[in-house]
């Protein structure tokens, strides 16, 4: 092989294997593709939005091994063997996630373009809350958690409220489960 052929072989599409919303996927993508491009243009998962494409807006936020990251800045080649979650994986069995319900009830989405990214950042925060010893709803903390997600419509107030409401539900549920595991509730 000549050097040029070598280079072109190295740049050809390569097969990526990763977990996507809990299921194994295999997809071919050229090495210069980002995770965002693979999700939207190879896997047709268009819930993840393509906004600024350079790390400013947060519309493309997905979870990588649980942590919110920007899929527009993530090389697909570096996702090999890892776990990716997108907004399509949030609800279970057709039921909306508590965050999605709260966003809908409180009118936390207007044009909706930032919503999937907001939801993915907030979902990681809710999972983190559930692991804390004394979780509490703190709107200042919610603002910080959503600090990488720009919204040009809402002014953020309703988004923060919706996340707070969903966080309250998670805390209540976590505390109830903890109480029940400490006390068998009189069950035989």
């Amino acid at each position: 092989m000549t050097a040029a052929e070598n280079r072109s072989a190295a740049r050809a599409a390569q097969l990526l294997h990763f977990q996507l919303n809990g299921e194994a996927v295999a997809v071919a993508a050229p090495p210069h593709w980002t995770l965002l491009e693979v999700l939207r243009y190879q896997l047709n998962l268009t819930g993840t939005k393509q906004g600024c494409d350079k790390g400013d807006c947060g519309a493309c936020t997905v979870r990588l091994d649980g942590a919110p990251v920007l899929s527009c800045m993530t090389l697909a080649a570096l996702v090999q063997g890892r776990a990716v979650e997108t907004v399509e994986g949030l609800g279970v069995g057709g039921e909306p996630h508590p965050l999605q319900r709260a966003f809908a009830e409180l009118g936390a989405a207007q044009c909706g373009f930032c919503t999937p990214g907001m939801l993915m950042s907030a979902a990681a925060y809710l999972d983190d809350l559930a692991t804390r010893e004394a979780p509490a709803v703190d709107t200042g903390e919610i603002s910080a958690v959503l600090g990488g997600n720009l919204c040009r419509c809402t002014g953020y107030t309703k988004i923060v409220q919706a996340v707070a409401v969903a966080a309250g539900e998670v805390i209540e549920r976590t505390q109830l489960l903890a109480e029940m595991s400490n006390d068998d509730g009189g069950m035989p």
Partner: peptide
């Protein structure tokens, strides 16, 4: 839409 130029990725 901003795209990366073609390049090679080597995982060291």
């Amino acid at each position: 839409m901003l795209r990366l130029p073609e390049l090679e990725v080597i995982i060291a």
